[in-house]
């Protein structure tokens, strides 16, 4: 079931070199379920921090981060890890595949945390790889794959557990244009066909064009939200 994401008065600071840097400042944000969001802003505007908070990789200093009906501040470390395993899929800029495992084994990793038999895990991983078009590369190690293929494996891994939310941090940052477009189309398809809520950090306006909505952050605060669907409709696309 698609989930919405809500942030209320979220503040997050980091200490660096004796100075406290407020990365997110009383941020309020509502994200609709089953919507593809791009998160843009200059460096240091808090994009990755926001992604980490929504993904439960980090916790806010104050405020509420709610994904679906779960307030993440109420979960301890172990519960947060379990929640991530069940509800969130991550796609990173550097692909972050484990080099010693094959594509299939990488995709199977998060499934180890699910109550599945070995056979079920294998079938589910293969389905995810087929979905991203890598059915003929399942037994290849990451070093035997191109950058685009590696990112598609990472996406397969992110969707293998059928999470409601997919968080992508610069997923096309290391890819050429054509490959990047293929990966973005794949994310768009996951949103449209499987109704995943996707939050993607990007610097690339072209990549942001694939999203339904673009959230602009500036110095830890919400700048504006552009609705690509509305502008497409207005432009007669």
């Amino acid at each position: 079931m698609p989930v919405a994401i809500t942030l209320r008065s979220v503040t997050k600071s980091y200490s660096r070199g004796g100075e406290t840097l407020r990365v997110l400042d009383e941020l309020d944000l509502d994200m609709d379920a089953a919507t593809f969001y791009a998160l843009m802003g200059p460096s240091g505007s808090g994009k990755t921090t926001l992604l980490n908070l929504v993904g439960g990789l980090d916790q806010a200093d104050s405020g509420v981060v709610q994904v679906g009906d779960i307030d993440l501040a109420e979960l301890d470390g172990g519960e947060l890890a379990q929640w991530r395993a069940e509800h969130v899929g991550f796609v990173f800029q550097g692909f972050n595949l484990l080099p010693v495992l094959s594509a299939r084994e990488n995709v199977e990793l998060p499934l180890l945390l699910a109550p599945l038999s070995k056979r079920q895990r294998r079938e589910q991983a293969e389905r995810a790889l087929e979905l991203v078009g890598l059915q003929d590369r399942m037994d290849h190690k990451p070093r035997e794959l191109s950058g685009g293929q590696e990112q598609r494996v990472a996406i397969a891994r992110a969707i293998a557990t059928d999470p409601q939310v997919i968080l992508a941090d610069e997923p096309t940052g290391d890819l050429d244009r054509n490959t990047a477009d293929a990966v973005l189309e794949l994310l768009q398809r996951l949103n449209r066909e499987l109704h995943k809520t996707i939050l993607m950090v990007t610097h690339d306006p072209q990549a942001a064009g694939y999203a339904d909505k673009v959230i602009h952050l500036d110095k830890g605060k919400l700048g504006r939200i552009d609705d690509n669907r509305a502008s497409s409709a207005a432009g007669g696309r």
Partner: peptide, 14 residues
């Protein structure tokens, strides 16, 4: 360190 970070992000416990 990298692999451990990935595993933890995927939901594996400490």
């Amino acid at each position: 360190t990298r692999d451990l970070g990935i595993l933890k992000a995927l939901g594996f416990a400490n």
